[in-house]
Design a protein around this nucleic acid. Structure first.
Lengths: 103, 103
DNA sequence: TGATTATATAGAAATTTGTCTATTTGTCAA
DNA sequence: TTGACAAATAGACAAATTTCTATATAATCA
């Protein structure tokens, strides 16, 4: 799984996708459940989920006819950490993260 | 200055802008210097700089005819922290950040 | 003042993105 | 096996984005 700063940024650079991410942040939801809550068509939701999938930001579980998605918090934390190290290397919070990661 | 997760993500969701960000990460550069290094036209660079400015990601210093830009590492760290708290709240690195910020 | 330089703004063209409808694929139940 | 349901894919279209050239604005210098 490639986690690049640009791919990550593109994936989260859309309000609808951030809404979906918040929905599945701490629980598994099927595509239909996400469709219901977000209010866009099912293909539109599938499209957004595919973008999140390609960026490595969601976990996927297939169960019969249904597919469940949940947020991959680990990868999101890694991407945010990469961004901070790349673009805020002299910041004290970044330095604290580096310490945690290297510990 | 409004620092929203979507505005931040849109601002960094472009390879050229990330290149510019890397260039001015730890030093002040004039627009002409950035143009030279990035290789796009001056208006294109000005446009990208305006997007970074509107997202609160750069510091600006005017000096005579020239305008110098440098990355606002503080705001970038804040935005990344917001993203982590919003989308990776259960991650141990996020928890470490929260501790640092609250300390 | 007039010429030159640095940057920003305006406007246009090409590309990318987000959304939809229609269709396909895959799974389950009768 | 047939029908129904869930999700993915294809294709079209509108809106947004990225880039360019041309022009405007502002500062400096002869």
């Amino acid at each position: 799984m490639k986690l690049s700063p640009v791919l990550f940024a593109k994936a989260i650079a859309d309000e609808t996708r951030q809404n979906i991410m918040k929905l599945v942040c701490c629980k598994w939801l099927s595509v239909s459940e996400i469709v219901e809550k977000v209010g866009y068509s099912q293909p539109t939701i599938s499209h957004h989920l595919a973008i999140l999938r390609d960026a490595g930001l969601v976990n996927i579980r297939e169960e019969g006819k249904q597919t469940f998605y949940s947020l991959n918090q680990e990868n999101i934390a890694v991407c945010c950490g990469q961004l901070m190290i790349k673009f805020a290397p002299e910041n004290k919070v970044t330095e604290a993260i580096v310490k945690v990661v290297n510990a």
